Amino acid sequence: MTETSAPPPTVGIVFRPQSPPEDLPSVAREAEAAGIAELWLWEDCFLEGGLTSATAALLSSERLKVGIGLLPVPLRNPALAAMELATIERLAPGRLVAGFGHGVLDWMGQVGARVASPLTLLREYVTAVRSLLDGDTADADGRYVKLDRVALGWPPASAPEIAIGATRPQTLRLAGELGDSVLLDSVNDAAAVRAARVIVDEGRAESGRPGRTRVRVFAEVDPRSDAPASRIADRIAELVDAGADAVAVQAPADAPDPRPLLDALPR
């Protein structure tokens, strides 16, 4: 019997919100031309909007997969989020990853959207959005999410991948239970990835869902450093060995332009 090797990791690049939004279409085109598989976006208060940015990147490319990391769930009604995501998925089928997270709690308080139990909200929210994107009629009477016979008029043919951003054990377990993938947005050393992989897998097993929840990691590499190509290759190998299925490389906040990293990324 021939042993089946694991699929190669997915490699992507991150367009940070410290870069001006008008640069995004050209970055998407350059990333696609360079053979990069994925382009990831942030939605941080009070910078670029994640849904509008994802639409711009998708419509500026033909094959590039675009991920939003992360949409803060307190900011949007889940029905509205599902409507927007369904529209984007129909415009660019199979190329969207919809990431959800608690949001930075101080920012959520700043806009009057902070909740007492972010984990409860995230569970209720992702459950409702997934149901709507699957074309179901959703009813919910939760602590935060309340829906009465809500159904999308234009559901996508297939729901986009849902990623959940997580760092702490409870949210990692929830990501394994409900998500198609987990985004380790600020946990990117090998030991932390290895520990997160265990918790995510436990959550998936407890849910009874078949398959595996993918682990995605953002890894920062300074393009101004010497030999960035070898640094990137070593970093990706280290994270994949620890259990990551996909790695997106980002430049630091004080030099956010991702284009200097494009030539250094493995294809």
Rank of each mutant, 00 (worst) to 15 (best):
N77M: 05
W154H: 14
A190N: 13
E220Q: 13
T10A: 14
A244P: 14
R235C: 02
S26G: 12
A255F: 15
A116T: 09
F100S: 05
I88H: 02
L39W: 02
Y144K: 07
N77A: 08
E30R: 14
V115M: 03
P78V: 10
V198M: 13
A251D: 11
V115C: 01
T87Y: 10
R76E: 03
D201G: 09
V249R: 05
E62C: 05
A37I: 09
T120S: 11
S158R: 15
T10G: 12
A157T: 15
V27G: 03
G142F: 00
A140P: 00
L184Y: 12
S26N: 14
L261R: 00
D234I: 06
T167Q: 09
L133Y: 03
V215R: 05
P169F: 03
A33P: 06
I162H: 03
R90L: 14
A116M: 08
A157R: 13
A81M: 12
F218I: 10
F218T: 02
G153Y: 14
E206Y: 07
A246Q: 13
D201K: 05
L132R: 01
D141E: 10
R235N: 08
R259Y: 08
L59H: 02
D201W: 00
D106S: 13
T87I: 01
E32R: 04
S117M: 02
D23R: 06
I162V: 15
V97R: 09
E177H: 07
A244C: 06
D180L: 08
A157W: 02
G112M: 08
L24K: 01
L64M: 03
T127G: 00
A237M: 01
I162N: 03
T171S: 04
A255K: 09
P156A: 10
W40D: 13
A191Y: 04
L96G: 08
L51D: 01
E89M: 12
T213F: 00
L85P: 00
A237Q: 05
A57Y: 06
G179I: 01
D44I: 13
L174E: 03
E238M: 11
A92M: 02
G94P: 07
D226A: 15
V111R: 05
D254A: 12
E202V: 06
A34L: 05
L80N: 11
N188G: 05
E124L: 02
A163K: 02
P252C: 09
R214A: 15
I13C: 12
A81G: 10
G135K: 01
L184G: 07
A28N: 08
S230K: 10
S230D: 15
P156C: 10
R16L: 14
A79Y: 06
Q170Y: 10
P9R: 10
P228H: 03
E177P: 01
R212V: 12
I199A: 00
D44T: 14
K65C: 08
A57L: 06
D245N: 14
R114H: 11
A166Q: 00
L265Q: 08
A157Y: 06
L70E: 07
K65M: 11
R143Q: 14
N77K: 12
G94I: 09
P252E: 04
E206T: 13
L105Y: 06
A57R: 02
F15R: 07
R259N: 09
V215E: 09
